[in-house]
């Protein structure tokens, strides 16, 4: 049976309405917060609540001035380098832990211990142990995100389907082929989630690391704004990191949509 034209038109209108409602519900909280801020800026001095127009101008200024944009890019580079380092070390540790019970028993408490150490303590340790700025920040980034990456990859490895693994093993693959055809595709969804979660954590930690131990980057710039009580500047620099996280999350989601297109989607969602 085919749909009549008015029915089809009603369906299309309904779908458009649903998209608008979703977009509206996504934007609404930001609009409310921005409006409240703008109203507050009318009643308080700019060093407490600067006008959003000033904040926007400062944001734009950061993006068009290379000396400032380079600070943003330095921070982004530090986040990505730290995350990449933590991911590769964490993945290697997770593989060892998944293969050996004794390695798991030995490493798990150490990683749990690391998880309990505050980011600021790692900053202090890094300043004492390392000389250069970059090694310090890299160390801090790795140490703060390593446990999460390790446990997430370990969980993914342990959660792999035994049936599918046995099926692949029945074809007697080499170790490299087992990794390529089975292990990597099976754990990739968890790896993507781990990156998404750790991206947010890393962007918060990098600011702390730069605040204390760097001479450039968003954290360092935030410190400068704090010293001159420039709230518009502080907000503008913070927003640079927020934009980065949003862009990075969007890129990861885009990759997920392509790579995981094999997933069945139920019409009745959670």
């Amino acid at each position: 049976m085919t749909m009549s034209e008015p029915q089809a038109a009603r369906g299309a209108t309904k779908a458009r309405g649903a998209i608008w409602r979703r977009a509206f519900s996504y934007i609404l909280p930001f609009v409310v917060v921005a409006s409240l801020w703008q109203i507050a800026s009318l009643f308080f001095p700019p060093f407490l609540f600067p006008s959003l127009i000033d904040v926007f101008k400062r944001c734009f200024g950061i993006l068009v001035h290379w000396d400032q944009l380079s600070d943003v890019l330095a921070t982004v580079g530090r986040i990505l380098a730290g995350l990449a380092g933590a991911f590769f070390i964490g993945a290697a540790l997770a593989v060892v832990m998944a293969r050996s019970q004794s390695a798991n028993r030995f490493l798990s408490p150490i990683l749990t211990l690391f998880q309990g150490i505050p980011a600021l303590s790692w900053v202090v340790f890094a300043i004492i142990w390392f000389h250069g700025i970059e090694p310090r920040i890299f160390f801090i980034m790795v140490m703060t995100t390593l446990p999460a990456f390790t446990f997430q990859v370990l969980g993914a490895l342990q959660g792999m389907s035994r049936d599918l693994t046995e099926m692949v093993m029945s074809f007697r693959p080499t170790r490299a082929k087992l990794f390529r055809v089975m292990i990597i595709p099976a754990i990739l969804p968890d790896i993507m989630t781990a990156w998404k979660v750790n991206l947010g954590n890393a962007s918060r930690v990098v600011v702390v690391a730069e605040l204390v131990g760097a001479t450039g980057g968003v954290g360092y710039e935030l410190l400068q704004q704090q010293q001159v009580f420039d709230m518009a500047g502080a907000l503008a620099w913070t927003l640079q990191l927020v934009f980065f996280v949003l862009i990075a999350q969007a890129v990861l989601t885009f990759i997920e949509n392509i790579v995981f297109r094999y997933r069945a989607v139920s019409e009745r969602t959670l």
């Binding site: 049936d163 599918l164 046995e166 099926m167």
Partner: peptide, 28 residues
């Protein structure tokens, strides 16, 4: 390549298409 198994359930790799699943053993 000398022993092949058909399992109780299909055990197809969900991230591979039908033809890619059939190619699995040949890749090995």
């Amino acid at each position: 390549g000398k022993i092949a198994i058909v399992f109780q359930n299909d055990r197809l790799l969900p991230w591979r298409t039908a033809v890619q699943n059939v190619e699995l053993g040949l890749e090995m």
